[in-house]
Amino acid sequence: MSGLLKSSIGRKVAMALSGLFLVVFLTQHFVINSTAVIAPDTFNAWSHFMGTNPLVQFVLQPILIFGVVFHFVMGFVLELQNRKARPVGYVEYKGSANAPWTSRNMILSGITILAFLGLHFYDFWIPEMIHKYVEFAPEDPTRYYAETVHKFESPVRVGLYVISFVFLALHLWHGFASTFQSVGFNNSYSKALSKFAKVWSVAIPVGFILIAVYLHFNQIPH
């Protein structure tokens, strides 16, 4: 048991489980974001709850940050190991003949998502932390919707978000479905689950794109 995380299979399972955890997080993030389009008051209420509830702030948020950091650090560690496993490369290597682009470029899509996370933290998380824990500004439960809408005023920012969500979809297209194989679940049920994972992997990022574009075209006065 102690050597599990040092073994190739243990690390693969850890990547899969941390990935699944992030899939669950993305789902709840999407559900909350979608209320910005459907019902701004609900968006404000849920955002206020997520931003002020001690359990969310001081238990779930650190777990989430750990999950994200673990996933990308382990991803880099495995990538470096894999590169070391073929010190002399092929002159001609036809990767497209036997594996889809998404599965062969997880590190590329992953790095793009990581870069996006930097922008996303700059846009939302860091200002929130400063607002709450540095400036100790008085809490206004109705501020979230307007602040979010204004973030999507710039077409460049919306463009960057759209590109990032496309890469998120590419990453999830391979990552989500392959978690079942990684944890040893490969049978007729897992094949159905994989199909669900593929649909989810496109639906959620497309949903995020639609929300960002909708907010861009439905600006409210400052």
Partner: peptide, 21 residues
């Protein structure tokens, strides 16, 4: 699996290339 790791083989990322080839 321990021996496989010690031999310096890489990690599986479920690309499926092995099965195809």
């Amino acid at each position: 699996v321990k021996q496989m790791d010690e031999e310096g083989f890489g990690n599986c990322t479920n690309t499926g290339a092995c099965e195809v080839e």
